[in-house]
Nucleic acid binder design. Structure first.
Length: 263
DNA sequence: TAGTTCACCTGAAAGC
DNA sequence: TGCTTTCAGGTGAACT
């Protein structure tokens, strides 16, 4: 979309997670996308008006791009390319002839237009990017100091660290050998300095995310992609650990961990 | 103020 | 075989 002019926007239903404003499509049409960025799980498209198009894939959302030189499909009435599918909720027709389509079966996705000079509250509240230089053990110690909630809940909080979901919190805690039920504040010394286990956790978060990006992982798929997630009853995969993976519920979400090697 | 619970949604899987 | 129920997730509002 970057560098493209948006010719036409079609909303194929009135809402995703929230209703679209009545002027959502018309405000987008005619605008040029200056650049597209990512912040945590949000995609941000900077527009020629100074507004920002905020997009979130939710659980099941995805984009696909159809290009004008794509092979024609007989009988199809949509630009001679693939027909629109049941859960194609938003289409962006671009001046180049390309079409960007947002598909989201579960409709947990989100789109909003943010006015010039305004930062969406959901974005401004986000914590540091876990793969950025700004994120280290001292920063995480500052966020966890005094927290009486569990490590699982704390790491799932996007204000503590941005972009970790349920699965990768489980994976990072397993990689760091830390129990998801441990009180978050116990990883911080009385003087506010991070304990050694917090440094290990920061490295584990980075390692788990980088590996996931390399695999272009999605939340469902090959079972061998995860070390603990969805492995209840299986042997722990850590070398030499005799433990069995346990499932518990925290904050209404499944947590998977090894009670033997995660302390 | 901090922490917890619930609703939203729908495809897949399990249960009957 | 077909119908019904349960479960999963990210986010924000409501609740404790």
């Amino acid at each position: 979309m970057a560098g493209e002019r948006i010719e036409r926007v079609e909303l194929r239903r009135p809402d995703l997670r929230a209703p679209f404003p009545s002027d959502f499509a018309t405000r987008l049409e005619g605008q040029t996308v200056h650049r597209v960025m990512r912040r945590a799980k949000y995609l941000l498209a900077e527009l020629s008006s100074g507004e920002t198009l905020l997009m979130h894939l939710g659980m099941s959302g995805s984009f696909r791009i159809e290009r004008p030189n794509a092979r024609e499909v007989p009988g199809d009435f949509h630009y001679g390319r693939g027909a629109l599918e049941r859960h194609d909720h938003v289409t962006f027709d671009l001046a180049s002839g390309s079409r960007v389509i947002f598909n989201d079966p579960r409709r947990f996705g989100h789109m909003a237009l943010v006015e010039r000079g305004i930062v969406d509250p959901a974005v401004s509240a986000l914590g540091p990017e876990p793969l950025s230089r700004r994120f280290d053990a001292h920063v995480l110690a500052g966020a966890l100091r005094g927290k009486k909630t569990s490590l699982k809940a704390a790491l799932s909080d996007q204000a503590v660290v941005a972009g970790l979901g349920n699965i990768y919190v489980c994976e990072a805690l397993h990689a760091a050998r830390l129990s998801p039920t441990r009180i978050a504040g116990t990883l911080v010394a009385r003087n506010g300095e991070p304990r050694g286990s917090l440094t290990t956790l920061v490295a584990a978060i980075r390692q788990v995310l980088q590996a996931a990006i390399r695999r272009q992982a999605r939340y469902r798929g090959d079972d061998d992609r995860f070390r603990v997630y969805d492995r209840e009853g299986d042997r722990c995969l850590r070398h030499g650990c005799p433990g069995t993976i346990r499932r518990i519920v925290q904050g209404g979400r499944s947590t998977f961990y090894c009670p033997v090697c995660q302390k």
